[in-house]
Nucleic acid binder design. Structure first.
Length: 896
RNA sequence: GCCGAAGUGGCGGAAUGGCAGACGCGCCGGACUCAAAAUCCGGUCCACGCAAGUGGGUGUGGGUUCAAGUCCCACCUUCGGCACCA
C-alpha cells in the first residue's frame, strides 16, 4: 500500500492503541494532571452526528498534545443513556428501553472509536448501569440528607438542623415533618407542566413556548405532589462563583440571567377597612423609590389572599377570572398578553408612605411564583403597569422626573406621560423624599420602612426550585419509601434507603407504558412497590429521576469508575479535580451546567469533593450547519447556476431573480445531514478530524463543505508523499528522505512551525495550527532531499491532529513504539528569526517601497535606508518631513 | 423589547494598532499523459491599463491616530439566548 490509504492504516492503529491500552491514565501519578472532558452524548438511535466529533476532536488534540508535554491526561467517554427518546421508541415498538439503549450505545461506541480518539476506555461510564445508578441514588440521598444553613451559607446534615422547641414539643412525627420541609430534596404540591402526549410532567426548562421541548406536544398546568430540589438556596453562590471561572462571557451571562438576581425591598400594604387581625399584603419591588407613585395593587390570580379580600359584589367576576387563569397555560398567558386583563377585587389597601387608599386588582400579568405574587403598581414608571392603567383607566402619577430630552422625544409632559419612564432620575411629588436621586432615595426609603416595620431590603431570584421527578419508567428510581398507616394510607412520612440497599433497580415489567394519568408506570409494579421493613409497611416512590440526574456527576465517576465502596475515592478526587477543560455544545449552557454545579456544591458542603466548582474552563463548540444552499423559494440551484451581483446572489440565467444563499441547520427534513460514517469511509478519520478543526474557530457556527474535506485529505496525501515512496510495492521511505543537515531556511521554517503550532494549541486555534503545517508541507514538497531530522518533529506536530497517519509515518521512519508519549518538539527562538526581513516604507501611511534589510537593523539605519531608497527619494525631496515613524524591524512611515 | 456574539474575496476563513485577504476550497493557465484522473508548478480582492502602474477596498456614517478590519460613538443586518421576573 504505497499510496495514502486511511482505510488500511486507521483500523490497525486503533487496534494497536486498544491492545496496548496506550491511553490508560494511571490513577495517581507524579506527573502534573490534565483533565479534559467532553460532554458525554445521549446515544440516540440516529447515531453520531458531525457535531459530536467537533468537540471530541478538539479535546482529543489537546489530550494527545498534553501527554506529549508530560502530563498525566484523563480523557474519558461515556453515555448519558436514560432519557425520553429510548422510552418513546420502546413504547411504540414494545422493545425494552434497555435493549434499545444498549444497541444505540454500541453504535455510538463504534462510531467514536472509528475516529481514533484517545479515550481511556477502561473508564467508560453508562448512567443506566446499576453500578452507576447506585451512586446517583446515593448522591440523591446526600441531597435528601442536607438542609441549607443560610446563616453560614452552606449545606449541612439534616441531623444538625435546629428544631424549634414548639415543634419538638409536638413529638417525633412533627420533628420529622419539620426536617422534611427543610431538606434540599423535598416533596411539594406544585403546579406542574403535564404533557398528556408524553405522559409525563416536564420541568419548566423542558417546556418551550408552551410545548414540550422534545416532540413539541402541548403542555397543561396542573397541581401534583412532586420531588423538588432546593437549588434556590444556592442561587447566590451559583452566581458569585461564576466570577472566577474561565468560561465565555456569553455563557456566564446566560447563567446570570437564568438565576436572575434582583435587589429591592419587600413592603407591606395594610388592607383598608380591615380590623387589626387582617393580614397585610406584601409586595416585592426593585423600585421602592417610586412608592409615592403606586396608584393601585395587583395580586396574582392564584394569590392565597384573594378569596379573603374579595368583596361580595366582585366575587363572581373574580372567581370567573381566577378559573380562566388557572386553565390557561403559560403560553396562552403570554401570547394573549398584547392586551392586559384583570379584575377589581373590591378591596383597597393603604399605601404605607402616604396613607392613600388604593384599589386592589387581580391580573395574570403578575406571577404567583415570583417575589410575593403581589405588586404595587406604579404605572408612571413601569411599562406593564402603565399599559394596565391605561386599559382600566387607573391614575398615573409621575414621581421620578424624566430627563427633558426624553420628554421631548416621547412627546410627554411631567403630568401627561405617553409611556412609562423606567430610568433613574430625581424624585418629584414624593413627600419628604422629593428631590432625591433614585439611588439615594432607595437607600433612605428602605431604612425608613425598616424603622417602622413596614418593609425591608430583599433579594429575589428568577431561579425556581428544580422539579426533579418524572412519571416515566426509564429513569433512576428514587431510593425512598413512603410510610403506610394501618389502613394502608400514606402517612406523609418518608424513609430513605441505606447504601446497603442500593442500587434500587427498576422492576422488570412487561408493560412500561405511561398510565395516561399522572400516575407513574412504576405504580403498576405492585410487588416492587409494596415493601415491608422492620415489620412496617411501606410503598416505594414510583416517580423516577429526570435525565439530568446522571449527567450531574458523571465527571466524578470517571475518576474512579469501578469503585463499589464509594462514588469516588477521595484521594483520586483530590488528584484529578477540577476538570481543566470542558467542551460541549452551547445548548447545555444553562441547565446541565447549572444543575451539575449545584450538585457539586452540595457534595462540596458535605465534604465529598474538594473543589467548590467542577469545571474550571469551559468552551462551547459552535454548530456545524449543512452545506451552503442556493434557493429561490423551494427551488434549489447549484453553485454554477448563480452568481454574485453586488451584495446579492442572482440566477445566471435571469439576473433579475434574487437567490437566497445560506447554510441551514442540519435536519432530516431538509435532507442536509452529513453522516460521519460516510465521511470516514471515503476520506478516513484523520481527514474528518482535520477538516472539522480546519473549518474555522471552534466556537463559531460554520457550514459543512465536502470539498473542504477533500482539501485536507489532499494535504494528508502530500504529507504522505513527503516521506513515502509511492511507486514501491512495499511501504518504504522515499529516496528524498535522507540523514542530512537541513538548509538554513528549512531549519528556520521548522522551528517557526513548531512555534506556531504550539502557540495555537495553547489558545485552541486549531485552524491556524493546521494552516501552519500546510505551509511547512508546501515548503518541504519543493525540496528534493528531505532531512529526517526535520520530518520527524514535523510528524510529531501533526500527530495530535491526525494520529493514524502520524503513527504510520513514525513507524516507517524507524520507530517501533507509538509516538503517543514522545516529547513534544521544542523550538529554538534564535532559529525562528530570519536573517533578513522585508520592511515596507510608507509615505503618509501608504506603502511606496519595500526594503530588504537585516532583521536586527537599528532604527536609525533603517530610517536612512528608507530615505535613501530610489522610490522614496523623489517623493520626499524638497518636502518638509513633519514626522518620521520607525517601528523596529517592521515599518517606516514618512509623514510629509 | 432586553442581553450576548458576529459582519473581511465567488466560498470557509487569516491578520500583538504597523504590508488586508495567510491557509484551504473554487476558478484560470502550464507541466506530466495517447488521453483522462491523480500529481506537480504558476496565477487569482475590485476597477482602469498590453504593461510598468494608478486608484479603490474589511456592513453604514462619524471620530481618535503618523498609521484602524483592529480603538471610541451612532446606526444597519444576521445568528444565539431570554422574554409580563415587578
Amino acid at each position: 500500500m504505497p499510496s495514502y490509504n486511511p482505510k488500511a492504516i486507521e483500523p490497525r492503529w486503533q487496534d494497536y492503541w486498544d491492545k496496548h491500552k496506550t491511553f490508560r491514565a494511571p490513577d495517581l501519578a507524579d506527573k502534573p494532571k490534565f483533565y479534559v472532558l467532553d460532554m458525554f452524548p445521549y446515544p440516540s438511535g440516529a447515531g453520531l452526528h458531525v457535531g459530536h466529533p467537533e468537540g471530541y476532536t478538539a479535546t482529543d488534540i489537546l489530550a494527545r498534545y498534553r501527554r506529549m508535554r508530560g502530563y498525566n491526561v484523563l480523557h474519558p467517554m461515556g453515555w448519558d443513556a436514560f432519557g425520553l427518546p429510548a422510552e418513546q421508541y420502546a413504547i411504540e415498538t414494545g422493545t425494552h428501553p434497555r435493549v434499545t439503549t444498549q444497541k444505540n450505545i454500541a453504535t455510538f461506541r463504534r462510531q467514536i472509536k472509528m475516529l481514533g480518539f484517545s479515550y481511556d476506555w477502561d473508564r467508560e461510564v453508562d448512567t443506566t448501569d446499576p453500578s452507576y445508578v447506585k451512586w446517583t441514588q446515593w448522591i440523591f440521598l446526600q441531597i435528601f440528607d442536607t438542609w441549607y444553613d443560610a446563616e453560614h451559607k452552606r449545606g449541612r446534615p439534616i441531623a444538625e438542623l435546629p428544631i424549634p422547641p414548639e415543634v419538638r414539643a409536638q413529638g417525633e412525627a412533627a420533628v420529622r415533618r419539620y426536617q422534611d420541609q427543610h431538606r434540599l430534596a423535598y416533596m411539594a404540591e406544585v403546579p406542574v407542566n403535564w404533557c398528556p402526549a408524553l405522559g409525563t410532567v416536564l420541568a419548566n426548562e423542558e417546556v418551550v413556548d408552551g410545548k414540550s421541548e422534545r416532540g413539541g406536544h402541548p403542555v397543561v398546568r396542573m397541581p401534583l405532589r412532586q420531588w423538588m430540589l432546593r437549588i434556590t438556596a444556592y442561587a447566590e453562590r451559583l452566581l458569585e462563583d461564576l466570577e472566577a471561572l474561565d468560561w465565555s462571557p456569553a455563557i456566564k451571562e446566560m447563567q446570570r440571567n437564568w438565576i436572575g438576581r434582583s435587589e429591592g425591598a419587600e413592603v407591606d400594604f395594610a388592607l383598608a377597612d380591615g380590623g387589626p387581625g387582617r393580614p397585610a399584603i406584601r409586595v416585592f419591588t426593585t423600585r421602592p423609590d417610586t412608592l409615592f407613585g403606586a396608584t393601585y395593587m395587583v395580586l396574582a390570580p392564584e394569590h392565597p389572599l384573594v378569596p379573603a379580600i374579595t368583596t361580595p359584589g366582585q366575587r363572581a367576576a373574580v372567581d370567573a377570572y381566577r378559573e380562566q387563569a388557572a386553565r390557561k397555560s403559560d403560553l396562552e398567558r403570554t401570547e394573549l398578553s398584547k392586551t392586559k386583563t384583570g379584575v377589581f377585587t373590591g378591596a383597597f389597601a393603604i399605601n404605607p408612605v402616604n396613607g392613600e387608599r388604593i384599589p386592589i386588582w387581580i391580573a395574570d400579568y403578575v406571577l404567583v411564583s415570583y417575589g410575593t405574587g403581589a405588586i404595587m403598581a406604579v404605572p408612571a414608571h413601569d411599562e406593564r403597569d402603565f399599559e394596565f392603567a391605561r386599559q382600566f383607566g387607573l391614575p398615573i402619577r409621575t414621581v421620578v422626573r424624566p430627563p427633558d430630552d426624553w420628554l421631548a422625544q416621547t412627546g410627554s409632559t411631567l403630568d401627561q406621560l405617553t409611556e412609562a419612564y423606567c430610568g433613574d432620575g430625581v424624585a418629584v411629588d414624593s413627600g419628604p423624599f422629593t428631590g432625591l436621586p433614585t439611588a439615594e432615595f432607595k437607600k433612605q426609603i428602605t431604612a425608613w420602612l425598616e424603622e417602622r416595620g413596614l418593609g425591608q431590603r430583599k433579594i429575589n431570584y428568577k431561579l425556581r426550585d428544580w422539579l426533579f421527578s418524572r412519571q416515566r419508567y426509564w429513569g433512576e428510581p428514587f431510593p425512598i419509601l413512603h410510610e403506610l398507616d394501618e389502613h394502608g394510607q400514606r402517612t406523609g412520612l418518608m424513609r430513605p434507603l441505606t447504601l446497603a440497599d442500593l442500587p434500587l433497580t427498576l422492576p422488570e415489567m412487561e408493560d412500561f407504558k405511561p398510565t395516561g394519568k399522572p400516575e407513574p408506570p412504576l405504580s403498576k409494579a405492585v410487588d416492587w412497590v409494596n415493601v415491608t421493613l422492620d415489620g412496617k409497611r411501606y410503598q416505594r416512590e414510583t416517580n423516577t429521576m429526570p435525565q439530568w440526574a446522571g449527567s450531574c456527576w458523571y465527571y466524578l465517576r470517571y475518576l474512579d469508575p469501578h469503585n463499589d465502596q464509594a462514588f469516588v475515592d477521595p484521594a483520586k478526587e483530590r488528584y484529578w479535580m477540577p476538570v481543566d477543560l470542558y467542551v460541549g455544545g452551547a445548548e447545555h449552557a444553562v441547565l446541565h451546567l447549572l444543575y451539575a454545579r449545584f450538585w457539586h456544591k452540595v457534595l462540596y458542603d458535605r465534604g465529598y469533593v474538594s473543589t467548590p466548582e467542577p469545571f474550571q474552563k469551559l468552551v462551547n463548540q459552535g454548530m456545524i450547519l449543512g452545506e451552503m444552499e442556493f434557493t429561490v423559494g423551494d427551488r434549489r440551484y447549484t453553485e454554477d447556476e448563480v452568481e454574485k451581483r453586488g451584495d446579492v446572489f442572482v440566477l445566471k440565467a435571469d439576473p433579475t431573480v434574487r437567490v437566497e444563499a445560506r447554510a441551514y441547520k442540519m435536519s432530516k427534513s431538509r435532507g442536509n445531514v452529513i453522516n460521519p460514517d460516510q465521511v470516514v469511509e471515503e476520506y478516513g478519520a484523520d481527514s474528518m478530524r482535520l477538516y472539522e478543526m480546519f473549518m474555522g474557530p471552534l466556537e463559531a457556527t460554520k457550514p459543512w463543505s465536502m470539498r473542504g474535506v477533500e482539501g485536507v485529505y489532499r494535504f494528508l496525501g502530500r504529507v504522505w508523499r513527503l516521506m513515502i515512496d509511492e511507486r514501491a510495492d512495499e511501504l518504504r521511505l522515499a529516496d528524498a528522505v535522507q540523514d542530512v543537515e537541513p538548509d538554513r531556511e528549512t531549519l528556520r521554517l521548522l522551528h517557526r512551525t513548531i512555534q506556531r503550532v504550539t502557540d495555537d494549541l495553547e489558545t485552541m486555534s486549531f485552524n491556524t495550527a493546521i494552516a501552519a503545517m500546510m505551509e511547512f508541507t508546501n515548503h518541504l514538497t519543493r525540496l528534493t532531499t528531505r532531512p529526517r531530522s526535520v520530518l520527524e518533529p514535523f510528524v510529531l506536530l501533526l500527530s495530535p491532529f491526525a494520529p493514524h497517519i502520524a503513527e504510520e509515518l513514525w513507524q516507517t521512519l524507524g520507530h517501533p513504539q507509538s509516538l503517543a508519549y514522545e516529547p513534544w518538539p521544542a523550538y529554538d527562538p534564535a532559529l525562528v528569526k530570519a536573517d533578513t526581513v522585508e520592511v515596507p516604507v510608507q509615505v503618509n501611511g501608504k506603502v511606496k517601497a519595500r526594503l530588504t534589510v537585516p532583521a536586527d537593523i537599528e532604527d536609525h539605519a533603517l530610517q536612512e535606508a528608507a530615505l535613501a531608497d530610489v522610490k522614496i527619494r523623489p517623493l520626499v525631496e524638497g518636502k518638509t518631513i513633519r514626522k518620521l515613524v520607525v517601528v523596529k524591524g517592521k515599518l517606516v512611515n514618512i509623514v510629509i
